[in-house]
């Protein structure tokens, strides 16, 4: 007896992929929606968090004290979106209202600080003996203090600390 259909070619021989595709798509969409990826957050590092000024210390050895470089950061009285930076002969007003002006003026501040750094090195003061102290005014926005900190870091100073705020 001939079995009917035994010669019928079975074309759909592979496994059914439809459920797999369904599940895989669901996993993909879940991961795309739920995942938080490496954002734009980065960190500025400081090894000396804060330096208390005005506190006397007993001289315990004969080491030469560090050369302090004081940088004052004050809120501009005329325009609160600006801030004044003074360090030695450097006196700049930085306009932080737009990113373009801020970036441009921070470049100028960095260049001035780099030059000061080179002059200190040329005068024989090594990097480990230069202590930069950033003195922000009490009400200066945190962002402005961070901008100055970044400029000092960019000028390749090694010892940078924040100091107590002033009025």
């Amino acid at each position: 007896m001939r079995i009917r259909g035994s010669k019928k070619v079975h074309y759909d021989a592979g496994p059914n992929m439809t459920p797999l595709v369904d599940v895989v798509m669901v996993i993909l969409i879940f991961l795309m929606l739920a995942g938080s990826f490496g954002g734009v957050e980065r960190y500025l590092t400081s090894n000396v968090p804060i330096k208390q000024s005005g506190v006397g210390q007993a001289a315990v050895d004969n080491t030469v004290p560090d050369t302090p470089l004081e940088i004052r950061v004050d809120r501009n009285r005329a325009d609160p979106s600006k801030f004044d930076v003074r360090a030695g002969r450097i006196a700049m007003t930085i306009d932080a209202s737009t990113q373009e002006s801020w970036l441009q003026q921070m470049d100028q501040l960095t260049e001035a600080l780099k030059q000061m750094h080179q002059e200190l090195n040329a005068a024989g003061t090594s990097d480990d003996k230069i202590q930069v102290e950033i003195h922000p005014q009490k009400d200066v926005p945190y962002a402005h203090a961070i901008h100055v900190f970044e400029a000092v870091t960019d000028a390749q100073f090694k010892k940078i600390s924040f100091a107590q705020s002033h009025e």
């Binding site: 957050e41 960190y43 400081s46 804060i50 203090a145 705020s165």
Partner: peptide
């Protein structure tokens, strides 16, 4: 970013008191 610096100061002081040398400031790149 708009917080006055005087509010950051106590956090830095506490870090210094606890002898934490490595302090990192989170920023937006």
């Amino acid at each position: 970013q708009d917080m006055p610096y005087r509010l950051l100061e106590p956090v830095l002081f506490v870090s210094a008191q606890a002898n934490v040398k490595n302090v990192n400031f989170a920023t937006e790149t």
